[in-house]
């Protein structure tokens, strides 16, 4: 059985900050873009709620930037690196 993404993320070390480094507009209308965003995140941190709005959690972020580049300012309203020392700390890289 393949491991779930949640299990895989559980192998990594994270220093979770108290404030998110990514801000989103979950109400954004473009359905295709929302679906692609859900698909794009390697950590599976974006989800579509039943009412079709986007839900996001920043804990577990691998800091790749895919969501920012994909949406180009739509849905992902702001994207920054986590504060110094915060976020994922790779042991292998």
């Amino acid at each position: 059985m393949a491991m779930t993404i949640e299990d895989k993320l559980g192998l990594n070390r994270f220093n979770v900050d108290s404030t998110p480094h990514i801000q989103i507009d979950g109400e954004y209308a473009d359905q295709t873009l929302k679906e692609r965003l859900v698909m794009a995140c390697p950590a599976k941190l974006y989800r579509l709620r039943e009412d079709n709005t986007v839900e996001f959690s920043y804990e577990g972020c691998l800091e790749c930037g895919t969501c920012r580049v994909l949406t180009g300012g739509r849905i992902v309203k702001s994207w920054d690196h986590p504060m110094g020392g915060m976020g994922v700390a790779f042991k292998k890289g």
Binding site: N12, C64, K91
Partner: peptide
């Protein structure tokens, strides 16, 4: 997962322990 489970790859990976999961642009 598709790569890892392809018939030409899967047997090479049997018994391995995942140590880290990462992503990068």
């Amino acid at each position: 997962e598709r790569l890892k489970q392809h018939p030409s790859v899967r047997d090479l990976l049997t018994g391995g322990q995942i140590q880290e999961y990462s992503a990068h642009l």
